[in-house]
Simulated scan of single mutants.
Amino acid sequence: MQTRIGPLPAKKPDSPILLALCLPALNVATPDILRACIKALAGSKAAPLGDDVQIVLAEAVNNIVEHAYSSLGFGALALRISLSGQSLRIDLIDWGCPFPNLSLPAGHAPEPETLSEGGYGWLLIRSLVSTLEYQRHADSNQLSLHFDLR
């Protein structure tokens, strides 16, 4: 039986945590996640990134709901936002299925003649973050999104 939730990896104490939460990985939770993130960024030096953060998180959360838990039915999603120097870091942790080949999708746009409604999420994510990392830890996935504050 697959684990659907577990402890979050430890966070370095030198990075102030603006928000840490764990919610069901359901599309109906996405607006709550986005509101909590914007509220956490308000008044910080990362506040101007609010629109980009919302777009990236909406895409990333949708991918977790639609793909990581597609064969499991449901699960949990943990989110942690921290500031460190000139960087905003968002960690998304889930206990669903890993990415194929344990690597992130390339993020190329679908061919225009296919008239695809999907397939643009990773292109958007990659274009809005400074760097992104994926790691599989035992039974969990960790997606780390970094935004440069400069």
Rank of each mutant, 00 (worst) to 15 (best):
A138Y: 11
A46S: 08
V53R: 01
S130H: 15
Y134C: 10
V28Y: 12
G75D: 12
S116R: 05
L123H: 13
R4I: 15
I81H: 04
V53K: 00
A46D: 04
D94F: 00
E113M: 08
G121D: 03
F147H: 13
Q142N: 00
L57T: 07
H108V: 04
V65A: 03
N141F: 12
G50W: 01
P16I: 00
S116A: 14
P48S: 05
L21W: 11
V53Q: 04
I38N: 09
I93K: 06
A78T: 10
M1P: 10
A10T: 14
L23A: 08
V65N: 05
A106G: 12
S15C: 10
M1T: 09
S70V: 01
I93H: 13
G75H: 04
E113D: 13
G85R: 15
A20H: 14
H146T: 12
P48G: 08
A29W: 03
I38M: 10
K45D: 13
E113F: 08
A36Q: 13
L57A: 07
L79P: 02
L18C: 12
D139R: 06
Y69H: 04
S70Q: 12
P105E: 12
S140W: 06
D14W: 00
I33K: 09
L26P: 03
Q2S: 11
D94I: 00
G6K: 15
S87T: 14
F147V: 07
Q135D: 14
L115A: 02
I33E: 05
P9W: 13
C37Y: 02
Y134F: 15
L124T: 07
G43Q: 14
L26Y: 03
S15L: 00
S84H: 13
S15Y: 00
D139P: 04
G75A: 06
L41A: 11
R126H: 14
E117R: 14
S144G: 00
L79E: 02
V53T: 00
E59A: 10
C22W: 00
R150C: 10
D139E: 12
L115Q: 06
F99C: 12
L92I: 13
L34F: 08
V129F: 07
G107R: 11
V56I: 05
A29I: 04
S15K: 09
A78P: 11
C97Y: 12
D32G: 15
G118M: 06
L18R: 04
A46N: 01
A138M: 13
E111C: 07
G96A: 06
D94T: 01
